[in-house]
Simulated assay, not measured.
Amino acid sequence: MQKKQRRHWVKKWTSIFQNRRERITPWILLAPSLSGVCIFVLLPFADVVRRSFLNAVGSEFVGLKNYKSVLQNTAFELAAGNTVRFLAVCLPLLLSISLFLGLLLLRAGEKSGILKSGFLLPMAVPAGSVVLFWQLFFDKGGILNELLEQAGVRGADYMNTPKAFGVLVAVYLWKNLGYDMILWISGLLGIPDSLYEAAKMDGANGVMCFVHITCPLLLPTAFLTGILSLVNAFKVFREAYMIAGNYPHDSIYMLQNLFNNWFLKLDMQKMTAAAVMLALILGLILIGSQKIEEKWGRGM
């Protein structure tokens, strides 16, 4: 009996230690990354939130005064409106065009290797080279106007007119098209061919297969691609800044331009309040997208 009890207690304590070790091991492995995120991201952002409720010196509590001044600022209204407009135009275009190209390249099979490399090339080109090319192409005396004049069409000043918005959209699409296309292709490759074969045996055509098989099974990929595209849309400031400078045309004056100008002026009150509002909106979008994805996933 004593031996059995001893074995029982040994097994029990051994299982307890194993369970604890299994729980602790992931946290030990994550500790360096979590420490870096806390020190360089979470703590600075917490300080930004604190400063958004203080005056410029950072000692007197002013409540929501900084937030009101941001919302009443005409430059903020212009930048926020342009950013929302940019996202509303670019994201649907990018997602739809990249999905279409992904379907075409999958049908092309092995012949699409060179095309895939071509679409991914903009990601490997340095931003400075990209901006120089777009400046030469869209400048008032640039390549595009030269070609139009040779064809008998009058050129335009693209960077100092509302057409600058179209230039920025083109830069964003050209830069991110290949990346999104690869994401779509990875999602398409995860759909079993047996589903399409069974549907065709039941008399379904290509459009029906796309609507009833491809679209539902691509929903997780669509959410991931959409979120990454949203994040990349906020990185377009580098190209916009290098093409048009601190104060570009009003049609492409984005939130990133505004933050940069406030930073140069050391306007900490407005900058911190606007940063907190932007982070809150993006967080709500991400949480809402995740909830929708989970809901649709359960419905499938």
Rank of each mutant, 00 (worst) to 15 (best):
F137H: 04
V207P: 00
G152S: 13
Q18K: 06
K265R: 12
T14P: 00
R50C: 02
P162S: 14
V37F: 13
I292E: 04
K265T: 09
N261M: 14
T74V: 11
F223H: 06
H212V: 05
Q5K: 13
M271I: 11
E146A: 13
W296G: 01
V167I: 14
A151N: 02
M201F: 12
G141F: 12
G36Y: 13
Y241V: 06
G187S: 08
I191D: 08
P32T: 11
G102H: 00
S52E: 03
G63A: 07
A75V: 07
G102L: 01
G81H: 03
R6L: 14
N66W: 06
M271E: 05
T272Y: 09
P216Y: 11
W134Q: 02
L101D: 02
I24H: 07
I185M: 15
L99R: 01
A79R: 04
G58Y: 05
D250F: 12
L106D: 01
M254I: 14
K200R: 15
A198N: 04
L168I: 15
L230S: 05
F237M: 08
A199N: 07
Y241Q: 08
P192M: 13
C215G: 01
F263D: 04
L255K: 03
A124S: 04
W184V: 13
V167N: 06
A164Y: 11
D202M: 07
Y158E: 06
V171N: 03
A275S: 15
Y179K: 05
I143H: 01
R21L: 15
L284E: 05
E110A: 12
L173G: 07
K140S: 13
D139G: 15
P44R: 09
W262K: 07
D250H: 06
K68W: 08
S35A: 15
F86G: 06
V276Y: 09
L219Y: 09
Q135T: 14
G118W: 02
F76Q: 02
R238M: 10
E294L: 12
M268F: 09
F61G: 01
E22P: 00
E60S: 12
I292M: 13
A88H: 00
S15W: 11
N66H: 06
M123N: 04
K4T: 14
S98C: 04
L286Y: 11
Q150L: 15
L177C: 10
A88P: 00
F76N: 01
V10G: 01
Y241N: 07
E146C: 09
A279Y: 08
L219I: 14
Y247G: 00
L106I: 07
L120W: 02
P32Y: 13
